[in-house]
Write a protein that binds this DNA or RNA. Sequence first.
DNA 1: TTTCTGTGATGCCCTCGGAGTATCAGTTCC
DNA 2: GGAACTGATACTCCGAGGGCATCACAGAAA
Lengths: 319, 319
Amino acid sequence: MPSEYQFPFTLRHLAYFREVARQLHFRRAAETLAVAQPALSRAIAQLEQALGVRLFARTRREVALTPAGAALLRQLDPVLRSLASLSDEARAAAAGERGLVRIGFTGLAMATVLPAILREFHRRHPGIRLELNESPTSAQLSDLAAGDLGCGFFHPDATTPGLATHLLLRERNGVLLPAEHALARRRELRLRDLAATPFVLFPRVHNPGFYDRTLAAFAQAGVTPRIAEEVWPRANAVGLVRAGLGVTFMCPSEARTLPDEVTFRPLSGPAPESRLVVGWKQSESLDPALAAFVALATETPRRNGLSARSLPPAAARPR
Amino acid sequence: MPSEYQFPFTLRHLAYFREVARQLHFRRAAETLAVAQPALSRAIAQLEQALGVRLFARTRREVALTPAGAALLRQLDPVLRSLASLSDEARAAAAGERGLVRIGFTGLAMATVLPAILREFHRRHPGIRLELNESPTSAQLSDLAAGDLGCGFFHPDATTPGLATHLLLRERNGVLLPAEHALARRRELRLRDLAATPFVLFPRVHNPGFYDRTLAAFAQAGVTPRIAEEVWPRANAVGLVRAGLGVTFMCPSEARTLPDEVTFRPLSGPAPESRLVVGWKQSESLDPALAAFVALATETPRRNGLSARSLPPAAARPR
DNA sequence: TTTCTGTGATGCCCTCGGAGTATCAGTTCC
DNA sequence: GGAACTGATACTCCGAGGGCATCACAGAAA
C-alpha cells in the first residue's frame, strides 16, 4: 500500500513546464507566468534533474520538446485538470451538492411515502447518491446509532435517546383477507368478528411497537387472536393470505395494488395503528447531504397524498 | 482554453492532508511524515483556508473528516497516483519504451517485409504505438523531409540528401497475366514475348525509379510496351489483369496469394527490378521510439524470408 | 567580417514561507 | 485535582525561490 507520496517536484514546476512547453520560448513563457526568465530557467532545470530526464532540447536559438517532454506534456493536462477540480469537489461536498446518504426503510415506507421523496430529492440534488437498504426497525435503530445509516424510515417504539424523529404517517390498519373468505362480503369489519380467524403476523422483535399496539387493540376488543404464521418482511404476508393461510393487518395506503385473490376491508372500532417516522442521529453538525435529505423528508408531507389532519405537528427538525 | 493553472495549495499540503485523513491523528501523522506536529497543523489549516472548506472536525480529543474532507480524500488518491506516474512515463518515453512512430509504406512493403517487422516490434516494444499510412514514394519523401513521417518503406529513386536508407528487398519482377492468356501455359516468359500484350502500369510520378527501370528493361529486350492503363495503388492492377485488360509486373513475393483467374510467371532475361528500402531523416538525436523501430527494421532481414545473397550490406544504421 | 539583437544560463543578494522548539489550552481518565 | 494526551499558537531560524545584472552564444544585418 502506498502510504506515502513523495514528489521530487512541485506544482509550480509542472505549471512552469507546461507554459514553456506550450510556447517553446522561455522569455515569453516567463512573461505569461509573471516571473523573471532566470527563475523559469532554474525551475525547468530543477524539474529535469528531479525527473532525471531532459525535457527540452535547447539550442542557443531554439527550444524543442524532447520525447520525454512531449510525453510529460501530453499526460500533464488531465492531471492538472483533476487537481484543479479537487477544490470544487470538496466545496460541493461541503455545500451538500455531492455526497452519499445511506437510508434504511421498511416495506411500509417504500409502499407509501418513500418513492415520492426519492424522486423529489434526486430532482433537487442530482449530485447526491442514495444507498437504500430495506431492514426492520430494530436493525435500523442500531445502524443509526452506529453511524452506518444516515437516516431511516421505520416504525417507532419508545423514543430512542440521541435520535431525532419526524412522524410521516399514522394510519389505522384494516384487514386483508382471502377474497373467498366469508367476511370478505362485508364492507367493514370489527376486530371481534375475527376471533375465530387465524392471523398472519410477524416476529415481535422487528417492530415491537406495532406488535404491541395490535395485541392491545385485540384486548380492547375482548378477543384473543389466533396467530397462525409469523412472516417477514411483511409484504410476504400478502402471499400467505392469498394462499388462504389466514388474514393479516394492512394500512389502507398499502392496499392500493393487490392481487384479485385477496380483499382489503377497513376496521371500525379498535384497530392497530401503523406509525412511520423518519429518524436520524441527533448531531450539531449534520452531513450536508444528509441534512438536505432530512430537510426534504420532513417537509410538510401533503404531497405524499396524506390528509393533513392525520398528522401531528413535526416532532423535530434538523438544524 | 485554460492557459494557466494556479493552485492555492501545494503537493505538500495534499500529501499532509492524506496522511492525517488516513490516521485521523495529527501527532502520529506528523511522525509518519517526519515533520513536527505544529507544521502539520499549520499546513492543514492553510489547505482548509485555501479551499475555503473545513476538512477536519476537530474536538480537543478527536479528529474526524468532514464531508468535504471525505470527498477530498476519496478523489485524492487517483490524482496523486497519476501524478506520481508522470515521472515514470517521461522516463519511459526517454528510454524509448513509450512513444509514437509514424510510418509510411507502399503496397509492396505491406505484401512483403512489413508485417513481420510490425509483429516483432510490437512484441519487443508494447508501449510504442505505430501509426501506419499507405502512401506513394514521392509523398513519403516529402513527408519525411517535413518531419510528418518518422520513417518510410518506399522505392528509392536517387538518394535524397539528409535521408538515411537501408535496402530491404531487391527482386526481379515477373509477369501477372490472365489465366486464360495464351502465354499463361508457359512456365517462364521473356519480355519480348510480351510485345503485343497491353500492359497495366502506374503513373510514373509515384515511383519513377521502378518505372524507368521497367522501360529500360523493355528497351534492353528490344521491345516497346503497349501501356493500356495506369492505375494506383498498384494492388489494383490485379483487378484489371483479372478483368482481362492486360498484364502487369509483380514481385514473386507479392504473387503468393492470388485469385484463380490470374497467373504469375517469372521472367528470364531482362526484367524490371523492384527495390524496397526503409528510410528516415538523418539526425544526431533520433526520437528513442523511432530509433528502436529503425534498429529493428534494419536488422539482418533473413527472417523476412529473403535469401541473404540477394541483399547488399546495410547502407546505413541509426545511431 | 563586424556589429547588433535576441536567446537561455549563471552569479549574487534578498525576502518570505515552512520548519522546529517551547508552550498553551482544553479534554479525559484515574 | 492531577496526569496524560490532544491540537493550536508564538517565536526564531534557515533555505528555497525570486529579481537584477550579466554572460555566452547564435543568427541576422550591415
